[in-house]
Design a binder for these strands. Structure first.
Lengths: 162, 162
DNA sequence: GTTCTTGCAAACCCTTTGCACGTCT
DNA sequence: AGACGTGCAAAGGGTTTGCAAGAAC
């Protein structure tokens, strides 16, 4: 079985640091160190893309680490809560995840027509969010920005507002 | 039956213009002018909030216009495609809609703890999105920005990153 | 009269849950 | 041993779909 989730990470995140972060979190919360949780963590660390729960499930299968979907969901939740993963909800149906340290505070732009996703980081955005939050009496935790656009190149990507 | 969707709109959108927009769109696409579609449009025009499909279904019932959920979904889709409505996907489960002309290009900030939603408009954000799109060879159609924050006031709203 | 739309219920997808079994401490 | 986590399958919520009946053209 072949998935599109690469197994040679290009990000420069130190796996050891993340494993410790997770171990600390579990300990702090009184949660147990189970094989399954670390199977999931190790897979996640080897992916340098966005992925959803089911893709991760299949990827784990392919690696020979069978973990049930229920456990995948539960572990993704833990990993999100301790800020190892970031959870996105794009237009589509399923939630997408990615390593938080992979490309901090970046946002996404997608072509309505071809589905291509462009990631970008724009410092100003974070600053504006911070300022707006303060102005309204809140403290920003994070933000999520998506730009819906269409490719300029009409050859590969024609937009039709049907 | 009483819903929380007000029936006295405070926005200053001209219903006639919107009805014409919709009629033109239907005509242009060869879709039919059905009672149900205009029931939905009229309801939508009388709401000055975000709403989801089911809230709209109940609101229509309350007004005495019975339209099935299937038709609600289909009509919401049409209204979104012709830019009368904007569709949002906040963290939660269901998609939320609102009139596009109600508060153009505004964004949302929500408190993780109490769920309060603050709407704001920041011109800079639109400008940055536009510039970023150009930089990557795309033409921006729209953007969606959410800020996840917590209320400053610790009395009403304590945040605990469990 | 033909084609499109509606309404209902069933199907669907993603996610969560109940419960029995297994594993961690 | 006890408590917690896992896996399975079933339930759940939101949304879409198949099909027969009805409405628009």
């Amino acid at each position: 079985m072949e998935t599109h989730l690469g197994s040679a990470p290009k990000h420069n995140i130190d796996p050891e640091i993340i494993r410790n972060t997770f171990a600390d979190y579990l300990k702090r919360k009184g949660y147990r160190n189970t094989q399954e949780r670390y199977f999931v963590l190790d897979s996640v660390l080897s992916i340098d893309k966005h992925f959803n729960a089911d893709e991760l499930y299949l990827y784990l299968l392919q690696r020979g680490d069978k973990v049930s979907r229920a456990t995948i969901y539960s572990t993704l939740d833990l990993l999100t809560k301790c800020n190892i993963l970031v959870k996105h909800r794009f237009q589509g149906d399923s939630a997408h995840f990615e390593l938080a340290g992979r490309m901090p505070n970046h946002d996404h732009m997608m072509c309505n027509e071809c589905g291509r996703i462009v990631e970008f980081r724009e410092k100003e955005i974070e600053d504006i969010c911070d300022a707006v939050s303060k102005k309204h009496g809140l403290k920003m935790m994070k933000h999520s920005l998506q730009i819906f656009a269409v490719c300029d190149d009409p050859g590969t990507c024609t937009y039709n507002q049907m």
